[in-house]
């Protein structure tokens, strides 16, 4: 990890890793979506709407995984003062929010035909909505701190505190009577037929690659922005004495 404390070394890695994850993600996710939409048999109860699973489930996993990433970045910032941690946090937050919103929207579209409702204040649905609001809060907070140019310690603490929601999302369908069904895939158990499981896992890996690609792109952009700011500031400092002399 500390090898990447040098942004230049990180950038050298990111230069080829970004297109690699992007292309892998597009191929895998795109292929899995086409597979799921056209090749998979209808479910015994859900019928054709089972195809929504291939978007909904990876989006849910990555929405939660993204917050795990924010928490890790927060710890790396607070404990090791890793120079890339703040930028990683800011880069992860947006794709994390996007996947969480995709999960909520596809879940709503799926809920209408199967459960008979667009939205219910069920434990799982509500805790997932809270996750989306936490992402919004983190983005607003980290943007404000980045603009002020101070340390990113407060957003990092916010990310760690927000991790409290992750076990709640996980347990919401087990401890509370909920409209949402319990997890199909848990340790040692899988209740999804192979015909659905294979495209689901490919879609999940593909979406994870897309998440990584988006994060790397944003990290590079944020680093470039910081570099540009520094250069402008230096130029302004160099120009200042001449300007003063001209006005005198």
């Amino acid at each position: 990890m500390h090898g990447f404390a040098n942004p230049r070394r990180f950038l050298r890695l990111a230069r080829w890793l970004t297109p690699a994850t992007l292309i892998t993600g597009l191929v895998l996710a795109g292929g899995a979506f086409v597979w799921g939409l056209t090749q998979v048999p209808p479910d015994r109860l859900l019928g054709e709407t089972v195809r929504i699973m291939f978007v909904h489930v990876p989006a849910a996993w990555l929405g939660m995984g993204g917050w795990l990433g924010l928490t890790s970045a927060g710890i790396a910032l607070l404990v090791w003062r890793h120079p890339l941690a703040a930028i990683a946090g800011r880069a992860i937050a947006l794709p994390g929010l996007v996947f969480t919103v995709i999960c909520l929207v596809t879940g709503s579209i799926w809920g209408r035909p199967s459960w008979g409702t667009w939205w219910e204040w069920d434990g799982r649905l509500t805790s997932m909505l809270v996750l989306a609001f936490l992402y919004l809060g983190y983005i607003a907070l980290s943007d404000a701190y980045a603009k002020a140019g101070t340390t990113m310690r407060v957003p990092a603490i916010f990310a760690i505190v927000g991790a409290v929601n992750l076990p709640i999302i996980n347990r919401s369908v087990v401890w509370w009577n909920s409209l949402h069904q319990p997890a199909s895939i848990t340790v040692g158990k899988n209740a999804i037929d192979g015909a659905y499981l294979a495209p689901l896992l490919v879609a999940a890996v593909g979406c994870a690659c897309l998440f990584a690609a988006a994060t790397l792109m944003r990290m590079r952009a944020l680093l470039a922005e910081a570099q540009m700011d520094a250069r402008l500031r230096r130029q302004a400092l160099e120009a200042a004495p001449t300007l003063l002399r001209e006005h005198a």
């Binding site: 479910d43 015994r44 069904q181 015909a195």
Partner: peptide, 17 residues
């Protein structure tokens, strides 16, 4: 005055069922 269906965690194709 309202009914909601609850799905279980099993996903099985019709033919297999």
């Amino acid at each position: 005055d309202n009914l909601l269906a609850k799905h279980d965690e099993n996903y099985v194709p019709r033919e297999l069922q």
